[in-house]
């Protein structure tokens, strides 16, 4: 049994296990489990509705950016710089899209692997990049939105630094392992 199989089993049983142990422990501690659950779950709707304005603001801005083709302009500007470290220009749209849009970067990853093959260096690189960082701007909008925070201080900067580090590390490690 390899690492992947073990991880798959854990991810499958994790949620049922957590739910079961919470319920059982609560029951053991004489908590009125059903009433308690309903009490907590009531808030679900409010949280979801609360993030709508933040999500609309963020996704519309990202939508405009994506539809305008501005990405191509950025790729053209940045590629001479990334060429210096040998970063392939084909993977640059992936690096730019990853923090902005989950569906967008998934599309780019799939496209690149279709064109160059999933086991080519580019294919391995973009799929590593996809997993190495999250959709920063979406996460920021949803998480801050859920508690109505509008002044985000250094969150964006720290998030972007982490994205750049993740993407560059993905490149260097891929070069080391697959290059």
């Amino acid at each position: 049994m390899n690492f992947k199989e073990i991880m798959n089993i854990i991810s499958v049983i994790a949620i049922p296990f957590v739910i079961f142990s919470f319920l059982f422990y609560g029951f053991f501690k004489k908590v009125k489990v059903y009433e308690s659950f309903v009490e907590g779950a009531k808030e679900g709707f409010n949280v979801a509705v609360r993030i709508i304005p933040y999500l609309v603001a963020m996704l519309v801005a990202i939508g405009i950016f994506r539809a305008s083709g501005a990405m191509d302009v950025f790729v053209a500007i940045l590629s001479p710089i990334t060429n210096l470290i040998g970063f392939p220009a084909e993977a640059l749209p992936m690096a730019l899209m990853r923090p902005l849009s989950g569906s967008g970067s998934l599309g780019i990853m799939t496209e690149i692997m279709k064109t160059h093959g999933p086991d080519s260096f580019l294919g391995l690189l973009v799929s590593t990049m996809y997993g190495s960082t999250e959709t920063t701007f979406y996460v920021l909008a949803v998480y801050f939105g859920s508690v109505n925070i509008r002044k985000t201080r250094h969150a964006v900067l720290a998030g972007v630094i982490s994205d750049i580090t993740g993407l560059l590390t993905a490149f260097f490690i891929c070069k080391l392992v697959f290059g």
Binding site: G26, V31, G40, G44, A48, L55
Partner: peptide, 22 residues
């Protein structure tokens, strides 16, 4: 996306409430 979150949101907030009370 927000509407799609309502269900899982309610589920986990409920579970967490039990965990808290216990």
């Amino acid at each position: 996306i927000a509407i799609g979150l309502i269900g899982v949101m309610a589920l986990w907030l409920g579970i967490m409430k039990i965990g808290e009370s216990a």
